[in-house]
Design a protein around this nucleic acid. Sequence first.
DNA 1: GATGAATGAGTATTCATTCAT
DNA 2: TATGAATGAATACTCATTCAT
Lengths: 205, 205, 205, 205
Amino acid sequence: MARTSGSDGRRTEEAIRAAAIDLIAEHGFAAVTLRDLAKEVGIQPGSVYRYFPSKNDLLLRLMVDHLQELLAQWQAASEGIADPLERLKTFIAFHVNYHASRQKEVFISNMEIRSLTKEHRRTVIALRESYEKSLRDLLEDGMRIGRFRTGDPQVSAYAILAMLTGLTAWFREGGRLSRAELVRLYEGLVLEGVLDNAEGLRQAH
Amino acid sequence: MARTSGSDGRRTEEAIRAAAIDLIAEHGFAAVTLRDLAKEVGIQPGSVYRYFPSKNDLLLRLMVDHLQELLAQWQAASEGIADPLERLKTFIAFHVNYHASRQKEVFISNMEIRSLTKEHRRTVIALRESYEKSLRDLLEDGMRIGRFRTGDPQVSAYAILAMLTGLTAWFREGGRLSRAELVRLYEGLVLEGVLDNAEGLRQAH
Amino acid sequence: MARTSGSDGRRTEEAIRAAAIDLIAEHGFAAVTLRDLAKEVGIQPGSVYRYFPSKNDLLLRLMVDHLQELLAQWQAASEGIADPLERLKTFIAFHVNYHASRQKEVFISNMEIRSLTKEHRRTVIALRESYEKSLRDLLEDGMRIGRFRTGDPQVSAYAILAMLTGLTAWFREGGRLSRAELVRLYEGLVLEGVLDNAEGLRQAH
Amino acid sequence: MARTSGSDGRRTEEAIRAAAIDLIAEHGFAAVTLRDLAKEVGIQPGSVYRYFPSKNDLLLRLMVDHLQELLAQWQAASEGIADPLERLKTFIAFHVNYHASRQKEVFISNMEIRSLTKEHRRTVIALRESYEKSLRDLLEDGMRIGRFRTGDPQVSAYAILAMLTGLTAWFREGGRLSRAELVRLYEGLVLEGVLDNAEGLRQAH
DNA sequence: GATGAATGAGTATTCATTCAT
DNA sequence: TATGAATGAATACTCATTCAT
């Protein structure tokens, strides 16, 4: 009924987060009970409330932390790169690598937005849109200077994001493909599409 | 109490399906209660069981019906088209149109797979994979005859599907873009990518 | 798992109310759990929610119904009585009889106001004040026409109400005193106080 | 972590009592959590246990201390007064003043008896009855010597106590009435009732 | 003297489901 | 064909209490 010998708040909180990410990614937020979560961590259900004020808040924290990390790392990775094509290649490599290494967090952040309260939803969507905008801006720049085909930057941004992010649904580290190969394949698709180049030229008009 | 005067089984079942699609697409399967559903239809919760043996079965029916319809319509639309490029263009147009017109069903079928029991899950995934395979085969054909750039047909299929299906997350009928414009934009992206053609050639080696 | 044979909604609701009045009067609202209540009625805890949207709402209903009945009966009992002294005697008799016969409801309505939400509290207090005002008005009338000693009608009203209502804390039907004796005793105290009359005269100046 | 610098046991205990009186008077014993209490004091919930063995014991201490003080002060105030009328007047003045100055303690002692364990309840009720008996005895004396109207001393005692104690429900220091005025008004009601004296005489038979 | 971490038993409430009518 | 009444198992969350530090 009291403090477990050797217990440590920081470690417990981290264990809760890790277990939550695993369980929610596997079963979905609504299907994970605090009982399940607590059992996985090895504590009592009520003890979760020392660290998170509610189940919903726990989800929010997971999402916000992930999205802020994503934004920060992208900022760092893209800093100083001005050329739109270079920026796009960097984006593809960054996005694929980050998403391959954090599949569960990414999956949760994409799937569980509906599980948030309206207010929390706004917070998360704002973060997501800031990331999207970064890609859209880059595409606009590239179109303006004639490096990219003229198109709809908004649609292209959505399309590229959906395509790349889709890897979380099937990619498994240590499987048939390495991350580097994945990056190369996606880069080809994003930049040149599926057509053979000669064909591409013929298509062009 | 007995039969409500003027009630009609077929109409009631259709009303349940329609209400279920609306509610699940909006709130997610787990968040929709049979009470919500019954209220929307104007019946008592228990009455749903005349038409569906359980809440889970209702979800399964929604998904299976949608996927079977998708497969049947794609079969019909692609029949007799042998050329891979033509087939791909047809696929893009078909997929975009179908998904734009049935956004809710599509959304549910993609998001709620985890809500199914293991057995039901297998059924739905098999249907989905049969559709995916159709695209993968087409891409393989195109690569074999040199019409498409050599790549990984599996990854390309996943990528194209994710890209196109992503429209359900943002596209709204009657908005800035028509379906026809959407098809044109996606076709450009899938076939040629984002690069300007001259650039594309230079990139080629 | 289904409807109990021979069950009837109206009877069940009445049983819940009766059990709630008994239990809350005995242990206090906060100390009565829905488990206790349900067990007393012979149903499952969740079944209470068919009849009352929440534990708090149940309390509100009990209080409001009692207070509305109190007001209605007092209206009926006092109708057509104009003379303040007659009205006061009628009030004493009515209040004592009503409170002796409905001790538990009265006790709850007086003790559990703090258990209500702010909004519910307002509703109940408004009803209570309407009853109080009825007594205050009568006292004012009596003072104006010189039938009652000049005093503070508000304080007198509070004092008389507290005095009479206090009976719920100790009076037991069938005990040493009958209701009629109780009325007579309280009437004496309210009208003449404790002093002997001769003494009363001497006190008067 | 060890002792907070500058902490002082006696001061902390006093702070806990004061906070408990405020919170319990406002929200009721059951509705006040040790967390609320600790927060109000500025300590951790567990720290309360240095001073009180349990939440229930804290309530008991509050009540017993208040009742013992009440008894002691009444003993002191009434000492040497033999005449029943004088004693009664003294009682009214004492009771009103004490209750006006300690409204919260009084309110708690009256309202929270049900929150005590059976054993604790007995302790508190014994103290209360000793106070009540003091009033009953005085009334009996007055009746015996013909100073007070013949009546039921027990009922009169309950009635007077309920009437006077009722002030805690509405009286606010600094409001329309001073304590002295309150005493005067209550004295009038207790001694002479509401009737005008002439009227009183006529009523007498 | 006080904290921070945890417990375990409990609470109101929800909900898919069942079945007598 | 549909309702109205009820179940039973689960759920998020709370709270008095304990005790290693």
